[in-house]
Write a protein that binds this DNA or RNA. Structure first.
Lengths: 226, 226
DNA sequence: TTTAAAATATGATATTTGTCATACTTTAAT
DNA sequence: ATTAAAGTATGACAAATATCATATTTTAAA
């Protein structure tokens, strides 16, 4: 069992407010998991009785809509927490969390987290701020979905993916999404997504080589995203 | 200066966790306002150094999109709080709050609220739960925007308006939105909204008399909204 | 009350986007 | 290595939605 003190999640999440004793307590009650690419961490409707710390790997938070399509609401990266909303509201998960890469996560049971809430105001405050950040993102995302065209949203999303998850040595987006998943992020049909990618490719905005996507003209994409 | 003890906001919001002493302290530092229909409580980009308690009247939270349209993100009704997100994140408001009816609101300064956070865990917990509720709503709303057609969203919204704000004696929706505002809620062009309302009217789903909207066939609307 | 402005309504049309069909390519299983 | 399945790509077409024009109605101001 590793100590939580050096963990990336401790460094970047609300957990940074925990002191040594609290970290030791947490280390003693945590459970570590390896999640393979494609596997769920939890699914819509399940109870989540604690929070997950993302040590490594990226996952998607998505929701199945009435028409059978999977809408990706958010991507979560190492250093972040997962499951807070559901745990705090004491409700089943509203979204499914599925690994986009092999992942390492730790689970901290609810009782432990509630203890921190009661004894560490800074931790509570951090958590509140973090959820407020999620809320702002969600509101902005909503306005984007409602007011922008599919083309604008694709441009916006490609830029977001490069900025948030970086690129490989060859300049291609580090994060690997299938066309279907990319379509699920921007909220459109897979074919429409593919068609627009081809269009961006032909007009020199991006380069497509197999699954790899390289952003060639960032400024033009930015203008396109508005 | 009225005591906060009997206030509807105290009854229905996170404030229900406050004890007598805290209520008295709050009553002593609050400021009351009357906001006329159409006037803003705060606007996108402004700093909000506290929270607003909605004693009476309904307001819209909206965001101006790049194409100049005002997207309504949420409606807020008596008993609810306003401005928490911005206050907690210590960021300018992400949304504008504008009165849809004449309103009565009270403002509680940030210093006071932070004091409650530090001394009253139940209040913090309530606030966290409330923001988590907002986040769930926003996520669901986002999926709706991304995956549903305008017709489905209009049906959904009309039902929401009746369920949330009730109806007058003549059966018409109590809340009065202009066509432009309704379009801003469902995320479409005003003309498209008007056209669909006419269509719903002709097919007997609703009745339109001037500005008044009466829902005639709730079940059919529900099925249409999916 | 009269009049101008704003809101509502509707038609015509263009644009965007989704759906279905099909072909090609890559991936993974036998 | 071969083959089936999944993923990617593209065309043809239909449906949904936006835009522009204009008429009508309502609201509010002089």
């Amino acid at each position: 069992m590793s100590k939580c003190e050096q963990c990336i999640v401790r460094e970047f999440s609300s957990l940074k407010a925990l002191n040594k004793d609290e970290l030791i307590k947490m280390a003693n009650c945590k459970t570590s998991y390896i999640i393979k690419k494609g596997e769920p961490i939890f699914e819509e409707g399940e109870s989540v009785n604690g929070i997950f710390c993302i040590k490594d790997g990226i996952c998607k938070l998505s929701k199945l809509s009435a028409n059978g399509k999977d809408q990706i609401v958010k991507l979560v990266k190492p250093g972040e927490l997962l499951g807070q909303r559901s745990m705090i509201s004491d409700e089943p998960a509203n979204l499914s969390a599925v690994a986009l890469e092999d992942m390492e996560v730790c689970f901290i049971p609810k009782s432990e987290v509630l203890g921190f809430f009661n004894n560490n105001n800074q931790f509570s405050m951090n958590m509140m701020k973090s959820i407020c950040g999620d809320l702002k993102e969600a509101d902005d995302h909503m306005v984007s979905m409602a007011q922008k065209t599919v083309k604008e949203r694709l441009a916006e999303t490609l830029l977001y993916l490069e900025d948030t998850f970086g690129k490989n040595e060859d300049g291609s987006l580090h994060i690997q999404l299938s066309r279907e998943e990319l379509a699920g992020m921007i909220g459109t049909a897979t074919e429409s997504c593919i068609r627009l990618l081809s269009e961006f490719n032909k007009s020199g905005l991006i380069d497509l080589t197999g699954k790899k996507i390289v952003i060639l003209d960032k400024n033009k994409l930015k203008r396109m995203a508005e």
